[in-house]
């Protein structure tokens, strides 16, 4: 095991797949020689693999995504980067109408093995166009798989699985986890999609969440343990496929569920999980399911406003206390 950041682990996964398979290539805005990606994930890869395989593109999101589709269906394994998740709005036709639907509407004739990497989340005071959490849109689009790695030890195994997957994968990252460190295995490993990870075992309440909220939830769980409240924390790792079994088994054990994400509340992924649990584990619930989300507003700029918008430790702890 080697301690490394999420960014380093992700880059290592990309590098291994590019070494393993010549058809894997990266394309996106400013991912190459001059910049190495807005979040420096691809820094050094253009030097190592050349500008053909680490391809800087014009600012043309819809054609970046569409070109990834065209390359994927003809024998390549593209990993396209959309610099900020907010900008994927410019590529929605290619992601949701083309990549997601081709296998289906062509009756299984076509496979679309592409990965679209992008980054969600706030906390950097960069306002409404660079901070959103839009993962639910893609979870709501049949044909796409959606990975939501939150930890360094997961991101490497998940990017490798995503690249080898025969279906299109929306690979969502989070701005505030790139510098988070963890022990990452030295040997090659892949993490299967649809397998959640119980990040902390507990007996009194289950917390299910994504991205940076998991890091906060783990800190909250540590604090609450001092008060004798035992919190179980579950990271889904992928939203599509979604590991329902792990959530339901946990709820059967704890009888209580708090769902925490940074998304605006209405129709967030937390709404879907709450619906699943009441459909499939209603009899085991000892309290109402609590949802901790952002308010239904655009992401604001000023620190006082953004700090209010993004769920904090206090709100997560309060939601847990409310149902204990």
């Amino acid at each position: 095991m080697t301690e490394m950041t999420y960014r380093e682990a992700l880059k290592a996964g990309l590098r291994e797949e590019m070494q393993r398979d010549e058809s894997v290539f990266l394309m996106g805005e400013d991912i190459g020689l001059n910049w190495g990606g807005a979040f420096k994930v691809t820094k050094g890869l253009a030097e190592e693999f050349g500008e053909e395989r680490v391809r800087d593109t014009p600012i043309s999101e819809n054609t970046i995504a569409g070109a990834a589709v065209g390359a994927a269906i003809t024998g390549m394994r593209p990993v396209a980067e959309i610099m900020f998740g907010d900008l994927i709005t410019l590529a929605m036709d290619q992601v949701c109408n083309q990549a997601a639907k081709m296998r289906y509407m062509f009756g299984g004739q076509t496979s679309v093995p592409l990965v679209i990497r992008t980054v969600f989340g706030g906390g950097k005071n960069i306002a409404s166009h660079h901070s959103q959490s839009l993962e639910a849109w893609f979870m709501h689009t049949p044909g796409l798989k959606v990975a939501v790695p939150a930890f360094a030890s997961d991101v490497k195994g998940l990017i490798k699985t995503a690249i080898r997957d025969p279906d299109p994968v929306l690979f969502a990252e989070h701005k505030l986890v790139y510098d988070k460190k963890e022990e990452v295995p030295d040997e090659e490993y892949l993490i299967p999609f649809g397998e959640a990870k119980v990040r902390r075992e507990g007996a009194d309440v289950t917390v299910w969440g994504t991205f940076f909220m998991l890091h906060k939830a783990l800190e909250v769980a540590e604090e609450l343990a001092k008060e004798g409240i035992s919190v179980e924390v579950i990271d889904p790792r992928t939203l599509v496929p979604l590991d329902k079994k792990t959530i339901i088994e946990s709820v059967k054990k704890t009888g209580r569920l708090v769902l925490v994400t940074e998304e605006t509340k209405t129709l967030a992924t937390t709404a879907e999980v709450a619906a699943i649990v009441q459909e499939e584990a209603f009899d085991w619930l000892d309290a109402p399911i609590k949802r901790v989300n952002a308010p239904d507003t655009p992401v604001p700029f000023a620190p006082t406003l953004e700090n209010f918008f993004i769920p904090d430790h206090k709100r997560i702890a309060q939601a847990i206390r409310d149902i204990i």
């Binding site: 819809n62 054609t63 970046i64 995504a65 569409g66 070109a67 990834a68 589709v69 065209g70 390359a71 994927a72 269906i73 003809t74 024998g75 390549m76 593209p78 290619q94 083309q98």
Partner: peptide
Amino acid sequence: LPIAVGAALS
């Protein structure tokens, strides 16, 4: 058109 770009790149 974008799909054609990708196929041609491929």
